[in-house]
């Protein structure tokens, strides 16, 4: 086993894949200066900068893929997908069905998500539930360097559109370039366990729709994704001191959803707490409740999500995003019910 950062894992997998497959090209906003090492190794033809024209270059990624390229297209923040939604909603997601499976668009949309750097409600959303709502899109959200590399490898091999979402707090690059910015005077609640960690000597693809158990426990199941997994693990440590034995599941992909792992884990404890940094209403947390209900599992249910627009104030932001205090409080409530 080796140890590396979340960013390094993604970069290594991309570099290895690009070296072997000339069809892989990267394009997006500021990619030459943001991906310095890839730009150096592969040059300006394969690491191509775009204008701030998301609807054009994301739309182009789809047909470039249909015509034989394997684009990795970067949109700086998932929030910026708002201006380019047609490409995902009506084009990429529909192709396979409309062509009855005869034509596919194998591209990866690489974007960042999540909050905690004080950037307010237009630059810190999660939106994986919103994206997963659309049939035909694969949505992955790794929480560790090992998963980041393994899921990127699967994304590059996948024959359809994959939205690959990197939580900004897991990335040294984004924490520095949106948060610290050369300062030592600010503090962010960083999930260190997810920023750096063990990875395989040789990368193996991690199949989509395969959740992983991060901690076993018999009293309560917490299901989460992204940075929520690390907040949940911290909370599980506190709950242990209170005598509550908590299992933590990392979904790793939102769509496809590992319903089997969800049902099994909830059956074991009969208590499900969903920790989801995405918006609470009409999203992943409700979907997980539906999965459990449809399977006829009798369980207590609760959720800790982002309930409203993320405020700018650092104090209010910390209260709005799922944090370990809210997770512990809601877990205890579930035990009492």
């Amino acid at each position: 086993m080796r140890t590396m950062s979340f960013d390094e894992a993604i970069e290594e997998v991309l570099a290895l894949a690009m070296a072997d497959d000339p069809r892989i090209v990267i394009f997006g906003e500021d990619v030459q200066m943001y991906r310095l090492n890839l730009y150096t190794q592969f040059g300006e033809r394969r690491i191509r900068e775009t204008p701030i024209s998301e609807s054009a270059f994301l739309g182009a990624a789809i047909t470039a893929a249909m015509a034989g390229l394997r684009p990795v297209v970067e949109v700086t923040l998932v929030d910026f997908l708002g201006v380019a939604m047609d490409a995902l909603l009506n084009q990429a997601s529909k192709l396979e069905t409309f062509s009855s499976g005869k034509w596919k668009a194998p591209f990866v949309l690489r974007t960042t998500c999540g909050g905690g750097l004080g950037d307010g409600g237009q630059h810190q959303q999660s939106l994986w539930g919103w994206l997963s709502h659309i049939p035909g899109l694969t949505v992955v959200v790794p929480s560790t360097p090992g998963d980041a590399g393994g899921l990127m490898l699967s994304a590059l091999k996948h024959d359809g559109p994959v939205i690959y979402m990197e939580h900004k707090l897991l990335s040294d690059f984004w924490v520095e370039n949106l948060g610290y910015l050369g300062r030592k005077t600010v503090d962010f609640d960083l999930p260190l366990e997810g920023m750096r960690g063990a990875v395989l000597e040789t990368w193996e693809p991690i199949p989509f729709g395969r959740a992983v158990s991060k901690r076993s426990g018999k009293d309560l199941t917490i299901i989460s994704i992204g940075v929520g997994v690390h907040r949940s693990l911290e909370a599980a440590g506190i709950l242990e001191e209170k005598g509550i034995d908590t299992c933590v599941i990392d979904l790793r992909t939102v769509s496809p959803l590992d319903t089997e792992a969800v049902c099994e884990a909830v059956s074991n404890t009969s208590r499900l707490l969903v920790v989801d940094e995405d918006y609470q209403g009409f999203g992943l947390s409700g979907e997980l409740a539906a999965v459990v209900l449809e399977a006829g599992i009798d369980a207590n249910y609760g959720r800790v999500c982002t309930e409203k627009t993320i405020p700018y104030s650092q104090e209010l932001e910390a209260q709005t995003l799922p944090n370990k205090e809210r997770i512990v409080e809601n877990a205890v409530k579930l035990m009492d019910r």
């Binding site: 730009y39 150096t40 040059g43 394969r46």
Partner: peptide, 17 residues
């Protein structure tokens, strides 16, 4: 390290980057 990988762009491309 990136500039000296033998796979990838040509040496001119690497130098240009």
């Amino acid at each position: 390290r990136s500039a000296t990988k033998w796979k990838g762009g040509s040496s001119q491309e690497k130098m240009r980057s």
